[in-house]
Design a binder for these strands. Structure first.
Lengths: 168, 168
DNA sequence: AGTTTATGTCAGCCTTGTTGACATTCCAAG
DNA sequence: CTTGGAATGTCAACAAGGCTGACATAAACT
């Protein structure tokens, strides 16, 4: 049937069997649940959702970013993002400033309150990530990052790499 | 501030800096988008969503499983799962049989049509996973699985391990 | 002046999560 | 044996957050 189910010589490519691939798929599913569990708990207490978290995260990561840039990172419609941004601005977590060079653009920043929430969410998520990283060691972490990067769509990898370089 | 931002000696634990952890977080975010992109496309053409995919995947993985067992794997409310199951049953993709031992239970199976959709979705997802795995090699894949497994909640890791063992 | 770009907003729809109420079935204590 | 509670699953209604489409405004570009 599928290419990898025809076992070759026997010694190599065993990690490409359908069964190994299925395990990879399930690992992604269950791990992503854990990955979002802590922030989700914090957010729901404050009446926010995962969408607010994503906005806050990437505004923190690229302060002064425009709405359009955020849209292409998040991959949602402007209507959907706008709903989230509006509540964050109304609640005083995000500051939206009209661009100086181009006055059509809005540049987004976290207020001190926004930074506080970002820090709370980010700390929870980093704690879990740190525990996992520490448990498995640096080489596993390299492999982890390599596989994830290879799994991204090209557009997303561009954003990922850009964010990565900006902070190195 | 956080533990890992105090750089230690210099040679070790560099993979535990806040910056490294943030990169791990963003890698998860962007990779998960890619991970679900192909099935999402297929599903939306047929009027289904990610919830249907999850149900189909785990029914295929454990034929005859009960609604309750599926609930604990998926981590949603039974009402939410029920809506998805109802449409799958109505559309003839899933077969629900009243339990013989305990008539309160419903045992779930994929029909041939359900298996066909499962195969289509699963093939698309495995293709991406296979391309990523092949690109980075077996050692990276081991690291990938180790990190993901360490990131799961205990309950979820139980399910993950159980599924893994059942198929080995 | 006319067009394109960036953004915001309104209206309405869909999926998928939630809670509450209820029916059925099983089992165990009286 | 019966009765009450626990387990299982269904139906109804609501909320969050995706989506599309239409439209408004202001600024920039040609």
């Amino acid at each position: 049937m599928s290419e990898s189910s025809r076992q070759p010589g026997g010694e190599s490519l065993l990690f490409l069997t359908d069964e190994q691939l299925r395990k990879g798929i399930e690992a992604m599913f269950f791990a992503y649940r854990g990955f979002t569990a802590d922030p989700d708990r914090i957010l729901s207490e404050k009446g926010y959702g995962r969408a607010h978290h994503r906005a806050i995260h990437f505004i923190n990561r690229s302060p002064g970013t425009t709405v359009n840039n955020l849209l292409s990172i998040l991959g949602v419609t402007k209507q959907s993002l706008n709903r989230v941004l509006r509540t964050l601005i109304e609640d005083g977590l995000v500051d939206s400033r009209v661009g100086t060079r181009d006055k059509r653009e809005r540049h987004l920043f976290l207020t001190p309150e926004g930074e506080a929430l970002e820090s709370e969410l980010s700390t929870a998520q980093r704690n879990r990530m740190r525990a996992a990283f520490r448990q498995v060691g640096p080489e596993a972490v390299v492999g982890f990052r390599q596989v994830l990067e290879a799994m991204m769509d090209n557009d997303m990898r561009r954003h990922y790499t850009r964010l990565r370089e900006a902070s190195e």
